[in-house]
Computed example of a mutant assay.
Amino acid sequence: MNQPLAYVHPGAKIAKNVVIEPFTTIHNNVVIGEGTWIGSNVTIMEGARIGKNCNIFPGAVISAPPQDLKYQGEDTTAEIGDNTTIRECVTINRGTIDRMKTVIGNNCLIMAYSHVAHDCFVGNFCIFSNNTNLAGHITVGDYVVLAGLTAVHQFCTIGNHAFVTGGSLVRKDVPPFVKAAREPLSYVGINSVGLRRRGFTSEKISEVQNIYRILYQRNYNTTQAIEIIEAEMEATPERDEIIMAVRNSSRGIMKGYTGMY
């Protein structure tokens, strides 16, 4: 139901059962799917593509132009999947000519005051706690949890099922299935709790753990570790996903923790 005190541009495409609370502004060239609720004082700017059954809380700004001096006004988008919740004062900028869009997947929870910059790709079932900040051109996999006050450097990649502890500065890529903590950010084990919650068997968790022991705890360099993993570990989707994440890393993966536990 469109409240009389909300402004919706005639060019916006809004499903019939979307709820728009007072004092919200929706610009031209916006698409919002069925069942979505838009709270008060939300600003949804050109290029927003919002899915079904989302909840967007007061103060959020979706699809603002990127905070990038290279942006020349190209026609880009900010896309949010189905069943995703955007809490208070979250800002999500649309893309630039690099990727042409910023994407947040399905079933995500982006908590208050978080920022997702231009050209970020965020997967499904992700949770970003309060004041999480993503710079531009970041790729985040599925089922990633970023605890509060996490800041991620531009062009970083965070793999599926990773957990990054609160207050972290992510300067290097975080491979899949791991826990990341300490300063500088380091491998501190695999995300076994998250993996169990998502149905990974004990055998599969042990397999992932053994791969990371070779990569992080046997004093091999990265090239040596990957060669050993390929030679000694049975080929599985998880093994191959880890290998590809390491090999395709443009910034390099985070290091193992070398201090005392």
Score class of each variant (00 low, 15 high):
residue 91 T to Q: 08
residue 184 P to F: 06
residue 1 M to S: 14
residue 127 I to F: 13
residue 197 R to D: 06
residue 8 V to E: 04
residue 113 Y to W: 10
residue 156 C to Y: 04
residue 130 N to G: 13
residue 132 T to Y: 03
residue 245 A to Y: 01
residue 15 A to T: 00
residue 204 K to T: 15
residue 30 V to K: 06
residue 230 E to G: 01
residue 151 A to W: 04
residue 78 A to Q: 09
residue 83 N to Q: 10
residue 136 G to R: 07
residue 48 A to K: 04
residue 206 S to C: 07
residue 7 Y to G: 04
residue 217 Q to I: 00
residue 3 Q to E: 13
residue 117 A to P: 05
residue 76 T to D: 07
residue 220 Y to C: 01
residue 220 Y to T: 02
residue 18 V to W: 02
residue 84 T to N: 02
residue 209 Q to M: 14
residue 42 V to M: 09
residue 44 I to W: 03
residue 237 P to V: 14
residue 107 N to V: 00
residue 54 C to I: 02
residue 254 M to T: 10
residue 5 L to G: 09
residue 215 L to A: 12
residue 161 H to D: 10
residue 254 M to E: 06
residue 240 D to W: 10
residue 12 A to C: 04
residue 182 R to D: 13
residue 124 N to R: 06
residue 19 V to S: 11
residue 160 N to D: 15
residue 228 I to F: 07
residue 161 H to T: 03
residue 234 E to G: 13
residue 69 L to D: 07
residue 74 E to L: 00
residue 62 I to M: 03
residue 150 T to Y: 03
residue 85 T to I: 14
residue 221 N to P: 10
residue 16 K to G: 04
residue 167 G to I: 04
residue 217 Q to A: 09
residue 203 E to D: 15
residue 133 N to S: 15
residue 209 Q to P: 00
residue 125 F to G: 00
residue 35 G to C: 09
residue 105 G to V: 08
residue 260 M to S: 13
residue 220 Y to W: 05
residue 60 A to G: 11
residue 22 P to C: 05
residue 139 T to W: 04
residue 120 C to H: 00
residue 258 T to R: 14
residue 73 G to M: 11
residue 202 S to V: 11
residue 133 N to H: 14
residue 157 T to C: 12
residue 36 T to C: 07
residue 226 I to V: 13
residue 132 T to E: 04
residue 31 V to L: 11
residue 70 K to D: 09
residue 35 G to P: 08
residue 239 R to F: 12
residue 194 G to R: 01
residue 216 Y to M: 11
residue 158 I to C: 01
residue 149 L to Y: 12
residue 74 E to P: 03
residue 151 A to V: 14
residue 70 K to C: 06
residue 25 T to E: 12
residue 94 R to T: 02
residue 93 N to F: 02
residue 153 H to K: 10
residue 194 G to Y: 03
residue 95 G to E: 08
residue 3 Q to H: 15
residue 134 L to C: 10
residue 130 N to V: 12
residue 258 T to M: 11
residue 116 V to A: 08
residue 21 E to S: 15
residue 249 S to W: 02
residue 95 G to W: 08
residue 225 A to H: 05
residue 119 D to M: 03
residue 40 S to G: 09
residue 258 T to D: 13
residue 172 K to R: 13
residue 223 T to H: 12
residue 225 A to D: 04
residue 225 A to V: 09
residue 152 V to W: 00
residue 162 A to I: 03
residue 182 R to W: 12
residue 126 C to G: 01
residue 73 G to R: 10
residue 16 K to P: 10
residue 148 G to E: 11
residue 59 G to H: 05
residue 79 E to Q: 13
residue 137 H to M: 09
residue 13 K to R: 14
residue 63 S to F: 02
residue 247 R to Q: 14
residue 184 P to Y: 07
residue 81 G to L: 09
residue 227 E to M: 08
residue 123 G to V: 01
residue 39 G to E: 05
residue 140 V to M: 12
residue 193 V to K: 09
residue 75 D to Q: 14
residue 82 D to S: 08
residue 18 V to N: 09
residue 110 I to H: 00
residue 198 R to E: 15
residue 35 G to M: 11
residue 229 I to C: 11
residue 218 R to F: 07
residue 177 F to C: 12
residue 147 A to N: 12
residue 79 E to P: 02
residue 183 E to N: 15
residue 50 I to P: 00
residue 243 I to L: 07
residue 98 D to C: 09
residue 254 M to S: 06
residue 119 D to Q: 04
residue 69 L to K: 12
residue 203 E to M: 08
residue 225 A to R: 08
residue 247 R to L: 13
